[in-house]
């Protein structure tokens, strides 16, 4: 099967592979600790760890866009900020 029309590149393949690994990791986590660990955190509504991953990924996308729009095209700092943001979300939200 020819997938050349999908125009794959190494960076985008790595990006999707990371997302896939995150989902697999979350599934393994859920297998060993079922229930999703629901809790009411900083945002004052109940979130499971799946919700917290969603908030982290969505926030990371906007952090990258904001960095690109306001600072410049070097996105390594945006990535570091996104990881920090995800850690904060998983600990406090």
């Amino acid at each position: 099967m020819n997938f050349s029309w999908m125009a794959w590149t190494l960076p985008t393949a790595l990006f999707f592979l990371t997302i896939l690994l995150l989902l697999v990791g979350m599934s393994i986590w859920e297998y060993f600790a079922p229930g999703g660990a629901p809790r009411v955190g900083l945002l004052r509504f109940e979130t499971t760890r799946g919700d917290r991953l969603f908030i982290s990924l969505l926030g990371a996308a906007f952090i990258h866009l904001a960095w690109l729009g306001l600072v410049g095209p070097n996105l390594w700092w945006a990535l570091a900020l996104s990881i920090l943001y995800a850690v904060i979300v998983f600990r406090t939200v």
Binding site: S4, W5, M6, A7, W8, T9, T12, F15, F16
Partner: peptide, 20 residues
């Protein structure tokens, strides 16, 4: 699959003929 393709297109330029 369409979403993945859109992400791939968003970081490339093309003038047709499947060249990116």
């Amino acid at each position: 699959i369409p979403l993945m393709t859109v992400v791939n297109y968003s970081v490339q330029d093309t003038f047709g003929n499947n060249q990116f």
